[in-house]
Design a protein around this nucleic acid. Structure first.
Length: 234
DNA sequence: ATCCCGAGGG
DNA sequence: CCCTCTGGAT
């Protein structure tokens, strides 16, 4: 069995080697592909952009062929939009997705020589990239400890009792404290052992997708059920 | 606040 | 059938 907790390398390059998807929120999800399973930052960025409003499984089913045909920013920037559109058709939303990632590749090429920058503002300046996507890329690839309050995190937090604040920074702080407490049972005061927010985020995404579902939450198999106010009795 | 505009699940 | 999907741009 793997040990509880998470590990992530903090460096300036490469995906964090192993972020164990295994702790109380935990259990492992065999075969689950996450942001970590990418060859480079370009793939991670594009795949993350595609994942907006789309389920992970559907994106994962197309990315191998996508990156096989257009392996880097230069290739994708010059891609025939109709071909990309055809490939991404199963994801819905017509050609908007293809146009979006092609525009992103062009922006990368123009502003950063095709390289993905480890810079929040520079990333957000790219077309189709917002705060959440930039967080995920910088967190998983560049080793920063960041948690984006995406739909999964927001939903779980809501069910755990988060009433909602408008200040994004405060929201993040609240959510982290809430989830950390729920996940570890700690009261986060004396123990100043810093948790890896990126690792936590990746676990929350899996948990949100496999257990804490929007429509039919699987409370029967949720490790947080006993302390979750919204848990439904089987 | 609304659009994007579609497949698939509950 | 209706809602949801690792948001972003307007």
């Amino acid at each position: 069995m793997t040990t509880p907790g998470t590990t992530a390398t903090h460096g300036d390059r490469g995906p964090a080697d192993v972020i164990e998807v295994d702790d109380r929120l935990g259990r492992t999800y065999p075969g689950a592909r996450t942001e970590l399973d990418h060859r480079d930052a370009f793939e991670l960025l594009v795949a993350t952009v595609l994942s907006a409003q789309t389920t992970d499984v559907r994106v994962n089913s197309l990315t191998p062929e996508l990156f096989s045909r257009w392996p880097d920013a230069a290739a994708l920037a010059g891609a025939d939009e109709e071909q990309v559109t055809a490939l991404l058709r199963p994801l819905g939303m017509g050609g908007t997705r293809a146009a979006r990632i092609i525009g992103l590749a062009q922006g990368l090429l123009r502003d950063h020589s095709g390289q993905v920058p480890d810079d929040q503002e520079a990333l957000e300046a790219l077309p189709g990239v917002g705060r959440k996507t930039a967080y995920v890329v910088r967190g998983t690839w560049f080793g920063h400890s960041l948690l984006a309050v995406d739909t999964h995190v927001a939903r779980l937090s809501r069910r755990l009792g988060w009433t909602g604040s408008k200040d994004p920074v405060k929201v993040e702080t609240d959510v982290v404290a809430l989830v950390e407490q729920a996940a570890t049972g700690s009261h986060g005061k004396g123990g100043s052992e810093e948790i890896d927010l990126t690792a936590l985020h990746l676990r929350l995404i899996l948990h949100g997708r496999r257990v804490c579902l929007a429509r039919a939450p699987q409370c029967g198999t949720c490790v947080l059920a006993d302390i979750c106010p919204s848990a439904e009795v089987a």
